[in-house]
Design a protein around this nucleic acid. Structure first.
Ligand code: FES
Ligand code: FES
Lengths: 132, 132
DNA sequence: GACAAATGATACTATTGTAGTATCATTATA
DNA sequence: TATAATGATACTACAATAGTATCATTTGTC
């Protein structure tokens, strides 16, 4: 079971790199050279981050990607939300229908509690806090 | 992201059913009729649980499955371990090699903490505690 | 002993989610 | 206008999950 998939992880590294960079705007070329990630995959990820408002992009020569906001305001939960969908540890499988048990199910209560807890912790993790 | 996959979930329900049943030994027929799960899939799961020492099986007419131990001694983490492998939320993707950063990586520390916490909570959940 | 009712073992298929590629269009700078 | 960048989109590859199908073996009952 993975809490963080590869695209989230790559996104994280790329954003951290950009945040640490002297230059505001960083090209995919530079990112690929430094982070050793597959270029087309990384491009897809960065384009997505641009669409989602985490990064902003500049086209044309000398173009690249920059933070749209600051490292303090980007959270791990944002990235997980984008690339992995809402965190849902919890889902009743009972015949794939809405479960008649839902309200009294013990398991659901337990898992929901864990989920809330995990989310609370992840929500505190900003890019800034990962930069050392 | 799923904390509990379908085979773990089915295993859980089946074990609970057997634990609640008046009869010690319950046949797949009865389980399928009551729990409405796909029969061959459930069989595969039960056979696995037998091999893993959670259930014991009785072959031949009037055969079926019974708990190998008591409901107090079977934990959610056992089932997750069997069907989903060791819980590892955490794994550095850096070029798939062992990461040189491992010791100082902030992200790793955070995720490891969360993992330990989740595991601690799941470890407390016995089948008994799910029976109402 | 024959038959029926059960599980054991094993190999196969289907679906989904993740990971990654390929290509062409568009934009900005020099 | 050539070039260096991103935008958009469609496609392929791989792995994990979910499920099926079949035949062999064991056991109780008539
Ligand atoms: S059995 Fe449906 S939510 Fe638990
Ligand atoms: S970067 Fe390798 S463990 Fe975090």
């Amino acid at each position: 079971m993975k809490l963080i998939t590869r695209n989230t992880d790559y996104a994280l590294r790329a954003i951290c790199y950009i945040a640490k960079s002297k230059k505001k705007v960083v090209s995919v070329n530079e990112l690929v050279a430094s982070l050793k990630m597959p270029r087309p995959f990384l491009r897809k990820i960065l384009q997505r981050l641009n669409r989602e408002g985490i990064l902003r992009s500049l086209k044309g020569a000398n173009g690249g990607f920059a933070l749209h906001t600051t490292a303090e305001k980007i959270f791990l939960t944002d990235l997980i939300g984008i690339f992995q969908g809402a965190l849902k540890l919890n889902e009743c499988f009972f015949k794939r229908k809405i479960c008649p048990n839902k309200s009294k199910c013990n398991l659901k209560k337990i898992i929901s509690g864990i989920e809330a807890d995990v989310f609370k912790k992840l929500k505190k993790v900003s890019i800034r806090s990962l930069l050392d």
